[in-house]
Design a protein around this nucleic acid. Structure first.
Lengths: 223, 223
DNA sequence: TAGATTGTTAATCGATTAACAATC
DNA sequence: TAGATTGTTAATCGATTAACAATC
């Protein structure tokens, strides 16, 4: 299941997409799929899919393709879905609550252990079944529970400070939802940011391009 | 401000990051910055930044660097921030509400016109100052208001259908927060997806790698 | 002026695509 | 067996990096 090959970030970013598409195929009852069929449905080439999988091992059968179930399973393993990862949520504002309520942590191999908030009114309550602690007790909690990932949905001004507290207490993964880039000296800490702003601005750029194009085509009607 | 050059998606994805970093520099009162200083703070090479900007024009001065204010302004223009883009929100569940409350649409050049929900109890109310319409009246609304982007925070099962309704009514940009890949026949429609799942699974992969590495190093203590 | 830094072309590197023998 | 499709190496393409003349 493993080669010692350096896996590019481009490949890493595609792995969850494979996993998601295979899950959908599985739900639809599809048993086998070829690299070309999967590629067509995902907008990739068959070569690229085979090349990506080649980084990790051999998962198919010549002349047949891939079994949807087992390929999904294998990619899940590669992604670390069955490693018992744990996560805590920092900040139970609108966004924190929304993600606690909506996001299927367990479907992605994560157990959501607790949430934290600075508001003493909220501490001691539950959000979506998850206990909320006061942020003052963060280090106490981390000393007692192994936490893989801290999810940051705190105000932008608190982002780096909360990140530092997590990292100093040994958390290795930061899932950053604040619109602030954060960084750490420890080289073994991984930061994954979800920047809504970057996403919308990229969309803004793309639709602006289309607008210009169609305006040009409007001015110069097709020959 | 424009060349006719094909701009790669890699460059497009970096533009919002430039914009964000320049905004932070501006807030910090920084007046000028060189490509090497900006690169260092963003984890890019000076060459890459100059090459990226070269796609769009000349924004610096030899021997001096870039004026933070005007470079930010120019990149904002490229991203389409002052084009008067508009957006509506489909689905006022936890996530929709959270984004309506938290996300600074106007700071990204978007005016949030309305939200839509299938729940008749919610229709007619306001969320964060934004009027909520019943989804039945979506087409009526779109006929009366120019909408650049529809933001999808509906249940996964409704994603494609709501997208189709938006696109059939002329909306060109879809900001997709559902964990379902959606697509459209119209080639001038742009879909930008925010897949929380993909993001967390990529993080899961990366921390799993670190776990393996540190376990290996623990077993074979450094020579 | 001398020093710094850009704009821009050329060189390098890495990722994607193509090709095909192996084999189910 | 013949047909299909993988695993894997080689070729191509595109993105990043390097270099340097132009110039502020």
């Amino acid at each position: 299941m493993k080669r010692n090959m350096k896996v590019s970030t481009a490949v890493i970013r595609r792995l969850p997409r494979y996993y998601r598409h295979l899950s959908e195929l599985q739900e639809a009852g599809t048993v086998r799929i070829s690299s070309s069929a999967l590629g067509k449905s995902m907008g990739l080439t068959a070569s690229q899919i085979r090349q990506d999988l080649f980084c990790f091992g051999e998962f198919g059968q010549q002349g047949y393709g891939y079994k949807v179930d087992s390929l999904k399973e294998e990619i899940g393993e590669i992604l670390g879905i069955s490693r018992g990862h744990t996560v805590i949520v920092l900040g139970t504002g609108n966004l924190g609550r929304a993600i606690i309520h909506n996001f299927r942590f367990s479907a992605n191999g994560f157990q959501l252990l607790a949430a934290f908030d600075v508001n003493p009114q909220v501490a001691g309550t539950r959000v979506g079944g998850v206990p909320v602690w006061h942020t003052d007790r963060l280090e106490e909690f981390l000393a007692a529970h192994p936490v893989s990932v801290g999810m940051l949905t705190v105000p932008i001004a608190a982002a780096q400070e909360m990140g530092d507290r997590l990292v100093n207490a040994g958390v290795k993964g930061i899932w950053n939802f604040t619109n602030r880039e954060i960084s750490f000296d420890q080289k073994d800490v991984v930061v994954e940011s979800v920047h809504f702003s970057d996403s919308l601005l990229a969309l803004s750029y793309m639709i602006s391009q289309r607008e210009d194009r169609s305006r040009r085509e409007g001015e110069e009607p097709q020959l």
